[in-house]
């Protein structure tokens, strides 16, 4: 899923300063699963914003709404009748949400309430870690099913580098060295010799380096 982090309240308050009617807009997709942008968090952020406004003696108009997804036009359309009632929409979906809402409603100011951090998964309740960098050409099966592009700090395809120590990355003892894990996993599978292959330079055209990406599925397109 896409994982995010709430922006500090102070930052959100300063973004919407001087805007009377505010809508906090959640998303039932990834950000609900990672507990940062679902209905629950919409309620908490809206309540905090109302407290701030009441304290400042301002009209506390902060309303709440959560869409099925903010990354699909059909759900964004649900805002059609109400979007223009607001001076600010604070979207707490991933970075896609504020943009889809902005693109659909020309005159509405949209603000991001979360920072989108990475594509990853939950290691345990309340702990998430990055797993994918969406490079557009998955190769993990060659590396014991673990991704050196997203998880090695240097994206080395022929690691591990000389900074790998006791299973950890040179950047921090808190960061596991994925190349250590790749070697262990390939060993466990009896396939260590496969790592002797020199991986040639990667084609980054399919990654963000090739420009903003778009995908068209002719079989689905209407």
């Amino acid at each position: 899923m896409i994982v995010g982090d709430s922006k500090p309240l102070e930052e959100i308050l300063s973004m919407i300063e001087g805007r009377d009617k505010v809508l906090v807009l959640g998303c039932r997709g990834c950000v609900t699963v990672c507990n940062v942008g679902g209905e629950k968090e919409v309620g908490i952020l809206a309540s905090a914003l109302r407290i701030a406004r009441k304290k400042a003696g301002l009209p506390p108009t902060v309303e709440e709404m959560t869409l099925e997804r903010q990354c699909d036009p059909e759900y964004v359309e649900e805002l059609a009748d109400v979007a223009e009632n607001y001076d600010a929409i604070v979207s707490i979906a991933c970075g896609v949400g504020p943009q889809f809402v902005s693109e659909r409603f020309r005159d509405v100011a949209v603000f991001p309430g979360i920072n989108t951090t990475f594509i990853g998964g939950a290691l345990e309740h309340g702990v998430w870690a990055e797993r994918c960098q969406s490079c557009g050409n998955c190769l993990v099966h060659n590396f014991g099913g673990l991704c050196p592009i997203a998880r090695c700090s240097k994206s080395l395809m022929n690691g591990p580098c000389g900074g790998s120590a006791s299973g950890n990355c040179e950047i921090s003892p808190e960061v596991p060295c994925v190349w250590d894990q790749i070697v262990q996993k390939m060993s466990a599978m009896g396939r260590l010799e496969e790592l002797e292959q020199v991986w040639p330079n990667k084609n980054w055209l399919t990654a963000r380096d090739g420009g903003p990406r778009k995908r068209v599925r002719e079989d689905l397109k209407q």
């Binding site: 700090s153 240097k154 994206s155 022929n158 990355c169 991986w199 330079n201």
Partner: peptide, 23 residues
Amino acid sequence: SGDHQRFGSHPESKNVYDLDSVQ
């Protein structure tokens, strides 16, 4: 490959690693 820039004088910089040392 080079030491990661998080150790260095400009830790906030973007790194490249288009190629690795073997490549």
